[in-house]
Protein backbone atom coordinates (compact mmCIF):
# COMPACT_ATOMS: atom_id res chain seq x y z
CA UNK A 1 0.00 0.00 0.00
CA UNK A 2 2.70 2.42 0.78
CA UNK A 3 6.25 3.37 1.15
CA UNK A 4 7.42 6.32 3.12
CA UNK A 5 9.18 8.88 1.01
CA UNK A 6 12.24 10.94 1.56
CA UNK A 7 9.93 13.55 3.02
CA UNK A 8 9.12 11.33 5.97
CA UNK A 9 11.38 12.71 8.61
CA UNK A 10 13.64 11.40 11.27
CA UNK A 11 12.73 11.43 14.92
CA UNK A 12 15.02 14.32 15.66
CA UNK A 13 13.93 17.81 16.45
CA UNK A 14 13.40 19.71 13.26
CA UNK A 15 15.70 22.60 12.72
CA UNK A 16 15.40 22.49 8.96
CA UNK A 17 15.70 26.16 8.19
CA UNK A 18 19.01 25.76 6.46
CA UNK A 19 18.17 22.49 4.85
CA UNK A 20 15.07 23.05 2.73
CA UNK A 21 15.20 25.23 -0.34
CA UNK A 22 12.12 26.76 -1.89
CA UNK A 23 12.39 24.22 -4.70
CA UNK A 24 12.34 21.40 -2.18
CA UNK A 25 9.40 22.91 -0.33
CA UNK A 26 7.50 23.10 -3.61
CA UNK A 27 8.11 19.40 -4.21
CA UNK A 28 6.86 18.59 -0.71
CA UNK A 29 3.81 20.79 -1.23
CA UNK A 30 3.01 19.02 -4.50
CA UNK A 31 3.27 15.66 -2.74
CA UNK A 32 1.02 16.90 0.08
CA UNK A 33 -1.52 18.10 -2.48
CA UNK A 34 -1.45 14.66 -4.11
CA UNK A 35 -2.17 13.17 -0.69
CA UNK A 36 -5.08 15.55 -0.17
CA UNK A 37 -6.92 14.77 -3.37
CA UNK A 38 -6.25 11.04 -3.04
CA UNK A 39 -7.45 11.00 0.59
CA UNK A 40 -10.75 12.73 -0.09
CA UNK A 41 -11.27 10.75 -3.28
CA UNK A 42 -10.75 7.45 -1.47
CA UNK A 43 -13.63 8.05 0.94
CA UNK A 44 -15.64 10.36 -1.29
CA UNK A 45 -15.76 12.92 1.49
CA UNK A 46 -13.65 15.57 3.15
CA UNK A 47 -12.56 19.09 2.37
CA UNK A 48 -10.06 19.50 -0.47
CA UNK A 49 -10.52 23.21 -1.26
CA UNK A 50 -9.19 24.80 1.91
CA UNK A 51 -6.66 22.01 2.33
CA UNK A 52 -5.07 22.74 -1.04
CA UNK A 53 -5.12 26.47 -0.33
CA UNK A 54 -3.29 26.12 3.00
CA UNK A 55 -0.78 23.51 1.88
CA UNK A 56 2.05 25.98 1.37
CA UNK A 57 1.65 27.45 4.85
CA UNK A 58 1.65 24.10 6.61
CA UNK A 59 4.61 22.85 4.56
CA UNK A 60 6.51 26.05 5.35
CA UNK A 61 5.78 25.75 9.07
CA UNK A 62 6.48 22.04 9.50
CA UNK A 63 9.41 21.73 7.07
CA UNK A 64 11.16 25.04 7.51
CA UNK A 65 9.94 27.34 10.26
CA UNK A 66 8.98 25.42 13.37
CA UNK A 67 11.24 23.81 15.92
CA UNK A 68 9.40 20.61 16.70
CA UNK A 69 9.94 17.01 17.68
CA UNK A 70 7.70 14.56 15.84
CA UNK A 71 8.76 11.53 17.84
CA UNK A 72 8.21 10.82 20.57
CA UNK A 73 5.20 13.08 20.42
CA UNK A 74 4.79 15.08 23.60
CA UNK A 75 1.44 16.73 24.23
CA UNK A 76 2.91 19.52 26.36
CA UNK A 77 5.52 20.37 23.73
CA UNK A 78 7.81 22.17 26.17
CA UNK A 79 10.58 23.87 24.21
CA UNK A 80 8.85 23.17 20.89
CA UNK A 81 6.93 25.47 18.60
CA UNK A 82 3.26 24.49 18.55
CA UNK A 83 0.73 24.65 15.74
CA UNK A 84 -3.04 24.67 16.20
CA UNK A 85 -5.51 24.17 13.36
CA UNK A 86 -8.71 26.02 14.21
CA UNK A 87 -10.44 25.35 10.90
CA UNK A 88 -10.34 21.63 11.53
CA UNK A 89 -12.19 20.67 8.35
CA UNK A 90 -8.94 21.07 6.41
CA UNK A 91 -7.68 17.99 8.21
CA UNK A 92 -6.36 16.37 4.99
CA UNK A 93 -3.52 18.88 4.70
CA UNK A 94 -2.82 18.68 8.42
CA UNK A 95 -2.64 14.88 8.38
CA UNK A 96 -0.46 14.76 5.28
CA UNK A 97 2.01 17.31 6.63
CA UNK A 98 2.13 15.63 10.04
CA UNK A 99 2.75 12.23 8.47
CA UNK A 100 5.37 13.48 6.05
CA UNK A 101 7.20 15.38 8.75
CA UNK A 102 7.44 12.22 10.82
CA UNK A 103 4.61 12.20 13.36
CA UNK A 104 3.07 8.94 12.15
CA UNK A 105 3.47 6.58 9.19
CA UNK A 106 2.55 8.04 5.82
CA UNK A 107 0.73 4.77 5.08
CA UNK A 108 -1.80 5.70 7.75
CA UNK A 109 -3.15 8.43 5.47
CA UNK A 110 -5.06 5.60 3.77
CA UNK A 111 -7.25 5.30 6.87
CA UNK A 112 -8.57 8.87 6.66
CA UNK A 113 -12.25 9.06 7.67
CA UNK A 114 -12.56 5.28 7.89
CA UNK A 115 -13.90 3.31 10.84
CA UNK A 116 -11.42 2.79 13.70
CA UNK A 117 -8.99 5.32 12.25
CA UNK A 118 -6.91 7.81 14.19
CA UNK A 119 -7.50 10.18 11.26
CA UNK A 120 -10.99 11.36 12.12
CA UNK A 121 -12.93 13.56 9.74
CA UNK A 122 -11.93 16.49 11.92
CA UNK A 123 -8.77 16.41 14.05
CA UNK A 124 -9.13 14.77 17.45
CA UNK A 125 -6.87 13.92 20.35
CA UNK A 126 -9.24 11.17 21.37
CA UNK A 127 -7.53 8.58 19.19
CA UNK A 128 -4.09 9.77 20.25
CA UNK A 129 -2.86 10.71 16.80
CA UNK A 130 0.60 12.25 17.30
CA UNK A 131 0.73 15.91 16.36
CA UNK A 132 -2.84 16.79 17.35
CA UNK A 133 -3.08 18.77 20.57
CA UNK A 134 -6.75 19.71 20.61
CA UNK A 135 -9.87 18.72 18.73
CA UNK A 136 -11.16 21.20 16.19
CA UNK A 137 -13.99 21.28 13.71
CA UNK A 138 -16.60 23.32 15.49
CA UNK A 139 -15.27 26.67 14.34
CA UNK A 140 -14.01 29.65 16.25
CA UNK A 141 -12.30 27.87 19.14
CA UNK A 142 -8.68 27.52 18.02
CA UNK A 143 -7.49 31.05 18.68
CA UNK A 144 -8.54 30.84 22.33
CA UNK A 145 -6.75 27.53 22.74
CA UNK A 146 -3.62 28.85 21.08
CA UNK A 147 -3.61 31.94 23.29
CA UNK A 148 -3.94 29.70 26.36
CA UNK A 149 -1.06 27.53 25.17
CA UNK A 150 1.02 30.65 24.56
CA UNK A 151 0.34 31.85 28.09
CA UNK A 152 1.34 28.43 29.44
CA UNK A 153 4.64 28.84 27.58
CA UNK A 154 5.21 32.16 29.29
CA UNK A 155 4.48 30.64 32.70
CA UNK A 156 6.98 27.88 31.87
CA UNK A 157 9.63 30.38 30.73
CA UNK A 158 9.50 28.56 27.40
CA UNK A 159 10.61 30.93 24.64
CA UNK A 160 9.19 28.94 21.73
CA UNK A 161 6.33 30.14 19.58
CA UNK A 162 2.67 29.20 19.15
CA UNK A 163 1.18 29.27 15.64
CA UNK A 164 -2.51 29.02 14.83
CA UNK A 165 -4.44 28.95 11.56
CA UNK A 166 -8.05 30.07 11.15
CA UNK A 167 -10.28 30.22 8.14
CA UNK A 168 -11.67 33.58 7.10
CA UNK A 169 -15.29 32.47 7.21
CA UNK A 170 -14.56 31.29 10.75
CA UNK A 171 -14.07 34.91 11.78
CA UNK A 172 -17.86 35.18 11.79
CA UNK A 173 -17.77 33.26 15.09
CA UNK A 174 -17.97 35.58 18.10
CA UNK A 175 -15.45 33.65 20.17
CA UNK A 176 -12.69 34.64 17.74
CA UNK A 177 -13.21 38.27 18.66
CA UNK A 178 -13.27 37.50 22.36
CA UNK A 179 -9.82 35.97 21.91
CA UNK A 180 -8.77 38.83 19.63
CA UNK A 181 -9.59 41.32 22.39
CA UNK A 182 -7.91 39.22 25.07
CA UNK A 183 -4.53 38.47 23.48
CA UNK A 184 -3.27 42.05 23.04
CA UNK A 185 -4.68 43.08 26.44
CA UNK A 186 -2.58 40.34 28.02
CA UNK A 187 0.43 41.05 25.80
CA UNK A 188 0.50 37.55 24.33
CA UNK A 189 3.46 38.28 22.09
CA UNK A 190 4.66 34.70 21.53
CA UNK A 191 1.82 33.96 19.15
CA UNK A 192 1.58 34.16 15.37
CA UNK A 193 -1.93 33.72 14.01
CA UNK A 194 -2.79 33.20 10.35
CA UNK A 195 -6.07 33.78 8.60
CA UNK A 196 -6.62 31.80 5.43
CA UNK A 197 -8.20 34.60 3.44
CA UNK A 198 -9.57 32.67 0.51
CA UNK A 199 -12.80 34.67 0.48
CA UNK A 200 -14.97 31.56 0.32
CA UNK A 201 -17.28 29.71 2.67
CA UNK A 202 -19.76 26.90 2.15
CA UNK A 203 -22.64 29.03 0.97
CA UNK A 204 -20.56 31.34 -1.22
CA UNK A 205 -18.11 34.24 -1.10
CA UNK A 206 -17.50 35.54 2.43
CA UNK A 207 -18.33 39.08 1.39
CA UNK A 208 -21.78 37.96 0.26
CA UNK A 209 -22.52 35.74 3.25
CA UNK A 210 -21.20 37.76 6.18
CA UNK A 211 -18.83 40.48 5.06
CA UNK A 212 -15.53 40.57 6.93
CA UNK A 213 -14.55 43.93 5.52
CA UNK A 214 -11.13 45.37 6.20
CA UNK A 215 -9.53 42.71 8.36
CA UNK A 216 -6.25 44.60 8.65
CA UNK A 217 -8.07 47.61 10.09
CA UNK A 218 -10.13 45.42 12.37
CA UNK A 219 -7.18 43.54 13.88
CA UNK A 220 -5.09 46.69 14.10
CA UNK A 221 -7.95 48.33 15.97
CA UNK A 222 -7.78 45.36 18.36
CA UNK A 223 -4.06 46.15 18.82
CA UNK A 224 -2.57 43.26 16.84
CA UNK A 225 0.52 43.61 14.61
CA UNK A 226 -0.83 42.75 11.19
CA UNK A 227 1.06 41.47 8.16
CA UNK A 228 -0.33 40.49 4.78
CA UNK A 229 1.03 38.03 2.28
CA UNK A 230 0.31 35.75 -0.63
CA UNK A 231 -0.16 32.39 1.05
CA UNK A 232 0.41 30.34 -2.07
CA UNK A 233 3.89 31.60 -2.99
CA UNK A 234 6.80 30.53 -0.83
CA UNK A 235 8.73 33.50 -2.21
CA UNK A 236 6.40 35.88 -0.36
CA UNK A 237 5.13 33.60 2.40
CA UNK A 238 8.52 32.71 3.86
CA UNK A 239 9.79 36.29 4.22
CA UNK A 240 6.48 37.28 5.79
CA UNK A 241 6.77 34.52 8.38
CA UNK A 242 10.35 35.61 9.06
CA UNK A 243 9.13 39.15 9.55
CA UNK A 244 6.41 37.91 11.89
CA UNK A 245 9.02 36.04 13.92
CA UNK A 246 11.11 39.20 14.13
CA UNK A 247 8.13 40.96 15.75
CA UNK A 248 7.77 38.39 18.55
CA UNK A 249 8.35 39.54 22.10
CA UNK A 250 7.30 43.12 21.51
CA UNK A 251 4.12 43.13 23.55
CA UNK A 252 1.66 42.38 20.78
CA UNK A 253 0.30 39.23 19.14
CA UNK A 254 0.92 38.95 15.41
CA UNK A 255 -1.71 38.33 12.77
CA UNK A 256 -0.81 37.27 9.24
CA UNK A 257 -3.60 37.78 6.74
CA UNK A 258 -2.76 35.24 4.10
CA UNK A 259 -4.40 35.50 0.69
CA UNK A 260 -4.88 32.07 -0.77
CA UNK A 261 -6.90 30.43 -3.46
CA UNK A 262 -9.18 27.64 -2.39
CA UNK A 263 -8.16 24.55 -4.35
CA UNK A 264 -4.73 25.95 -5.25
CA UNK A 265 -2.81 23.64 -7.58
CA UNK A 266 -5.80 21.99 -9.22
CA UNK A 267 -7.18 24.33 -11.86
CA UNK A 268 -10.79 23.24 -11.82
CA UNK A 269 -10.95 23.52 -8.01
CA UNK A 270 -9.32 26.92 -7.74
CA UNK A 271 -11.12 29.95 -6.40
CA UNK A 272 -14.55 28.38 -5.99
CA UNK A 273 -16.45 27.60 -2.81
CA UNK A 274 -17.95 24.62 -4.64
CA UNK A 275 -14.89 22.53 -3.72
CA UNK A 276 -15.11 23.36 -0.01
CA UNK A 277 -16.37 19.94 0.90
CA UNK A 278 -16.69 17.87 -2.26
CA UNK A 279 -14.46 15.01 -3.33
CA UNK A 280 -13.25 14.57 -6.92
CA UNK A 281 -14.54 11.65 -8.97
CA UNK A 282 -12.18 9.17 -10.67
CA UNK A 283 -11.69 11.27 -13.77
CA UNK A 284 -11.20 14.47 -11.81
CA UNK A 285 -8.67 12.74 -9.58
CA UNK A 286 -6.57 11.73 -12.60
CA UNK A 287 -6.61 15.28 -13.94
CA UNK A 288 -5.68 16.66 -10.53
CA UNK A 289 -2.78 14.24 -10.13
CA UNK A 290 -1.46 15.14 -13.58
CA UNK A 291 -1.43 18.78 -12.48
CA UNK A 292 0.28 17.92 -9.19
CA UNK A 293 3.36 16.32 -10.66
CA UNK A 294 6.35 15.66 -8.45
CA UNK A 295 9.83 14.67 -9.53
CA UNK A 296 9.77 11.56 -7.42
CA UNK A 297 6.22 10.58 -6.53
CA UNK A 298 5.93 9.09 -3.07
CA UNK A 299 2.22 8.43 -2.90
CA UNK A 300 1.11 6.39 0.08
Amino acid sequence: MSQDTSFAASSETHTPAATKSVAELKQIAAQVRRDIVRMVHAVNSGHPGGSLGCTDLLVALYFKVMKHTPQPFDMDGIGQDLFFLSNGHISPVFYSVLARSGYFPVSELATFRKLNSRLQGHPATHEHLPGIRVASGSLGQGLSVAVGAAQAKKLNNDSSTVFVLMGDGELQEGQVWEAALYAPHHKVDNLIAFVDRNGQQIDGPTEKIGGLGDLRAKFEAFNWRVLETDGNQFETLLPTIEEAQSLLGQGQPIMVLMDTQMGFGVDFMMGSHKWHGVAPNNEQLEIALQQLAVEEAGDY
Binding site: M75, D76, G77, I78, L82, F84, R133, V134, G140, Q141, G142, L143, S144, V145, A146, V147, G148, A149, A150, Q151, A152, K153, L155, N156, D158, G174, Q175, E178, A179, L181, Y182, H185, H186
Partner: peptide, 26 residues
Protein backbone atom coordinates in the same frame (compact mmCIF):
# COMPACT_ATOMS: atom_id res chain seq x y z
CA UNK B 1 -1.06 37.21 40.57
CA UNK B 2 1.04 35.65 37.82
CA UNK B 3 -1.07 32.51 37.85
CA UNK B 4 -4.40 34.30 37.46
CA UNK B 5 -6.02 35.34 34.18
CA UNK B 6 -8.83 37.88 34.16
CA UNK B 7 -10.75 37.03 31.01
CA UNK B 8 -13.51 39.58 31.22
CA UNK B 9 -17.06 38.86 30.13
CA UNK B 10 -16.04 36.27 27.56
CA UNK B 11 -16.78 32.80 28.84
CA UNK B 12 -16.30 31.00 25.53
CA UNK B 13 -12.79 32.40 25.29
CA UNK B 14 -12.16 31.41 28.90
CA UNK B 15 -12.93 27.75 28.18
CA UNK B 16 -10.63 27.75 25.16
CA UNK B 17 -7.86 29.48 27.09
CA UNK B 18 -8.19 26.88 29.84
CA UNK B 19 -7.88 24.06 27.32
CA UNK B 20 -4.77 25.70 25.88
CA UNK B 21 -3.20 26.23 29.31
CA UNK B 22 -3.27 22.47 29.95
CA UNK B 23 -0.85 22.14 27.03
CA UNK B 24 2.28 22.88 28.98
CA UNK B 25 1.12 21.09 32.12
CA UNK B 26 -1.03 23.69 33.82
Amino acid sequence: PERFFQVGIAEANMMGLAAGLTIGGK
